[in-house]
Amino acid sequence: MPVFQLADQLLFPPPHLAEPDGLLAVGGDLTPPRLLLAYSSGIFPWFNEGDPLLWWSPDPRFILEPTAIHVSRSLDKVIRRGSFQLTIDRAFTEVMLACGPDRQEDTGTWITDGMLAAYGRLYKMGFAHSVECWQGDELVGGLYGVCLGRCFFGESMFHRQSNASKVAMVFLARRLAAYHFDMIDCQLPTSHLASLGGRGISRTAYLSRLRQAGVVPTATPSPAPFPSEG
């Protein structure tokens, strides 16, 4: 399969034309319209500092269903102990910056200046959100991603204390479940996400579930699970 070179036109090739490793296209930009079109089409950006902008649509796709998140006994004890305080959208930029150095456990892109600016714009527009995990005034874990329809597209997560990122994911999943969200897109598999109940589904099934979750190209954010918490 060829890797498509994107032009200025706001258009992506069909996801099923991706390479076996999921690489679909190169080039384009990180403007909000292109990013939102990508996510709603089952495509996401993933590239390292100095690389061209790469767009991916892997098959299978790794997802986590909010109502099916697995919480081990040990993790449940940590949550019930109240060791961490959880907030939403209180430190979006700080979470993105913290995700950058710890790529080996995450599934999003390296946090370049361009990525920071692009997702910062989506955050200001109400599309991107963060979950923060605190111990006192110290940010010790968290995650961020994009919300469209009834789907949360997870981009990256980090932890500085054991279990902090898992606690953040459980908090997110339970909140999304309360609002009848269909899935959390985890993009690619990791043992970290698999331990929480993540699983792979075919690209065809993933795209079908996007439509069932009301994910279509849109200029209107889905803020319901993410009210301002100061």
Score class of each variant (00 low, 15 high):
50 G>Q: 08
46 W>D: 00
130 S>P: 06
103 R>P: 03
154 G>R: 00
88 I>T: 05
141 G>L: 04
167 V>A: 09
55 W>V: 00
178 A>F: 13
83 S>K: 11
15 P>F: 04
22 G>D: 06
73 R>Q: 12
39 Y>P: 00
89 D>Y: 04
89 D>C: 06
230 G>D: 11
138 E>L: 15
3 V>I: 15
72 S>D: 13
28 G>T: 04
23 L>V: 09
106 D>V: 10
227 P>Y: 12
30 L>N: 02
4 F>V: 14
119 Y>Q: 01
133 C>H: 03
71 V>F: 07
152 F>C: 08
124 K>L: 13
80 R>W: 08
47 F>C: 10
126 G>M: 06
149 G>L: 07
146 V>M: 07
52 P>H: 09
121 R>M: 10
101 P>F: 03
161 Q>T: 10
187 Q>D: 09
208 S>I: 11
130 S>D: 05
139 L>T: 04
134 W>A: 06
215 V>N: 03
213 A>Q: 10
148 L>S: 03
165 S>M: 05
20 P>N: 14
53 L>I: 11
184 I>H: 02
113 D>Q: 12
213 A>L: 11
167 V>K: 00
213 A>G: 14
142 G>A: 06
8 D>F: 12
85 Q>R: 15
30 L>T: 03
221 P>M: 09
75 L>N: 10
133 C>E: 00
199 R>T: 07
164 A>E: 00
172 L>Q: 01
221 P>E: 11
32 P>E: 03
33 P>Y: 13
139 L>H: 02
24 L>W: 05
42 G>S: 09
155 E>A: 04
215 V>M: 11
204 T>Y: 05
151 C>I: 08
227 P>I: 10
196 L>Q: 05
159 H>I: 06
140 V>R: 01
24 L>V: 10
51 D>T: 11
215 V>Y: 05
111 I>S: 02
144 Y>T: 00
44 F>N: 03
222 S>C: 14
61 R>K: 14
218 T>M: 06
68 A>Q: 14
76 D>Y: 12
78 V>Y: 00
166 K>W: 07
56 W>L: 07
12 F>L: 11
139 L>K: 00
129 H>T: 07
41 S>D: 08
85 Q>M: 11
182 D>T: 15
222 S>R: 10
19 E>K: 15
128 A>M: 05
84 F>C: 09
162 S>E: 15
13 P>D: 08
192 H>S: 12
217 P>K: 13
164 A>C: 09
144 Y>C: 00
210 L>R: 01
180 H>V: 09
211 R>N: 10
172 L>P: 01
15 P>D: 09
128 A>H: 02
108 G>A: 05
22 G>P: 03
37 L>P: 05
65 E>T: 10
210 L>T: 03
159 H>Y: 07
141 G>F: 03
14 P>H: 15
145 G>K: 01
132 E>K: 05
